[in-house]
């Protein structure tokens, strides 16, 4: 097993009395798209800024390419590409100039690939950055990141200002990076995007990682929605692992949620009642998300 690209162990960050990060632990490997999800203010951007060496962790440890994120940040950034959530560009430079400058800062140059990206994303590079919309500013940062040949890519809510066409372009470009064996950390709250693209996911809440794993693994921790029609009347509300049992719109139609661990025994009961029709919906990431956040509120 090769060394992970990013390793974070029990990272903590205080701002005065406020504890922004309490316990962050996860790893990102090569050839993997890692989703980092959580609501606003949960600590996503603070985590990323710590990883970039912009702010210094108060506790714990984080390395990228095996190097310390604070001490060795310049060496790390040589092989890293980053797109911030809010892109601030120098107002009196054009988009084209900004892209070139950002590439030069990494010792690379404007290539045919850059031109192709500019064309694909539909950016007018001759406009002054101050006249760009939020989406266009994001495009500038994305084009610079994608034309860089980095080993680790960090995107902090990169598509919040993009239209659906450009969002699709972004997803294609990220999958291309994955095929090339690059590591990608994608922070987002567009859950459909994360669901489609990410191999593994970490969920952060109030500065703590509360769940890490693949979507399939996480689904095991939650409930599957079942809609079933049986020959005989069913009274399954008291079965272990069954929740919110209620009759459907048709006779002998029932709806309920079942915990993954109890799925087999519940299915046996259903079969005994004679299944006429069965529809099962695996939990979406959104359900998972609500599950964790709903639980936290109680």
């Amino acid at each position: 097993m090769t060394q992970p690209v990013l390793e974070i162990h029990h990272l903590q960050k205080h701002f005065g009395r406020f504890q922004a990060l309490k316990d962050i632990t996860f790893t990102v490997n090569s050839g993997e798209v890692f989703g980092f999800i959580g609501p606003n203010g949960a600590g996503k951007s603070t985590t990323i800024r710590t990883l970039l060496g912009l702010i210094r962790a108060t506790g714990g440890h984080a390395t990228i390419f095996g190097q310390d994120v604070w001490r060795d940040n310049v060496a790390i950034h040589q092989r890293l590409a980053y797109v911030p959530g809010d892109v601030y560009l120098w107002p009196n430079l054009t988009g084209g100039e900004t892209i070139d400058l950002l590439l030069k800062l990494n010792g690379t140059a404007h290539t045919a690939h850059t031109d192709e990206l500019i064309k694909r994303f539909g950016l007018d590079p001759t406009k002054k950055a101050r006249t760009y919309s939020k989406g266009n500013r994001q495009k500038v940062a994305l084009i610079a990141a994608f034309s860089q040949d980095a080993d680790f890519y960090i995107f902090d809510e990169p598509t919040s200002g993009l239209d659906p066409l450009n969002e699709r372009l972004f997803q294609e470009a990220v999958l291309h990076l994955k095929q090339q064996g690059k590591a990608v950390l994608l922070s987002s709250h567009i859950l459909s995007e994360v669901e489609r693209m990410c191999d593994r996911i970490a969920i952060i809440r109030e500065g703590t990682i509360i769940e890490t794993g693949s979507l399939a693994e996480m689904r095991h921790l939650t409930r599957t929605e079942i809609t079933v029609t049986t020959e005989q009347p069913l009274a399954a509300a008291d079965l272990p692992g069954v929740h919110s049992f209620q009759p459907g719109r048709h006779p002998h139609e029932y709806q309920f949620a079942v915990e993954a661990q109890q799925l087999a025994s519940v299915m046996a009961t259903l079969t005994a009642h004679g299944i006429v029709a069965l529809q099962s919906t695996p939990p979406t990431l959104e359900d998972l998300f609500m599950h964790y956040y709903g639980a936290g509120k109680e």
């Binding site: 120098w90 430079l93 100039e97 400058l101 030069k104 590079p125 001759t126 406009k127």
Partner: peptide, 23 residues
């Protein structure tokens, strides 16, 4: 009105110092 600018950066715009000067 602001006029459109350069499509690519000139050769000397290459680092923090030239960026600061340019601004």
């Amino acid at each position: 009105a602001t006029r459109p600018g350069r499509r690519t950066a000139s050769a000397w715009l290459r680092g923090p110092l030239s960026l600061l000067w340019r601004r």
